[in-house]
């Protein structure tokens, strides 16, 4: 019960921030994919870089553990590309479609309904995927530092510097 309450509170805070940063907008999402407006990339990179430092500190002091999804190339590559194609059509991702409806962008609702249908279709197709794509190129639960055989505090500063350089470049282009 407490867990459900935490979920709700966390979601409210996240949704609040998504709306305040204009991440819920079709024009911002498609704007990023068309290299016209990088608002969502700025938001995402800032969140990832901040989260990365905090999560690895929590891991090191033993408060939390990582929760990784397995790296299955046969699933993640085609799945990611198919997701991207659908995202380009809809202009919202699963979380932001819900948020878009909440701020009055009703077209997000058609996306939510489509996603429910998509989830149902996937459940029907799953037995086939399980024996094919989901078995190809399974590298298990790996992180970049593990794959490279170096400590995470070696990789994290590199990621932050690369992220900041990318953001500086985006700002220099006025995106």
């Amino acid at each position: 019960m407490k867990e459900l309450l935490y979920g709700l509170i966390t979601g409210i805070m996240f949704g609040f921030l998504l709306q305040r940063a204009q991440v819920l907008r079709y024009d911002k999402q498609i704007g990023a994919l068309r290299f016209l407006d990088m608002t969502i990339v700025k938001f995402m990179l800032s969140a990832v870089m901040t989260g990365m430092v905090g999560i690895y500190i929590l891991k090191d002091i033993g408060i939390a553990s990582l929760s990784l999804k397995p790296t299955i190339l046969g699933a993640v590559i085609p799945g990611g590309l198919v997701f991207g194609i659908g995202w380009g059509l809809l202009g919202y991702c699963p979380g932001t479609s819900i948020g878009a409806v909440a701020e009055g962008r009703i077209d997000g609702l058609w996306g939510v309904l489509g996603m429910l249908v998509g989830a149902g279709v996937y459940a029907e197709l799953y037995p086939w995927f399980k024996n094919t794509l989901l078995t190809f190129g399974d590298f298990g639960k790996i992180t970049v530092p593990q794959a490279l055989g170096v400590g995470h505090w070696f990789i994290i500063p590199i990621v932050i510097i690369a992220g900041l350089l990318l953001l500086r470049w985006i700002e220099s282009k006025n995106l």
Partner: peptide, 16 residues
Amino acid sequence: AFVGGTIAMIGARLAD
């Protein structure tokens, strides 16, 4: 939007 949502979710579930 509906078709896009359907496609996106199939992809998202495959990609996990």
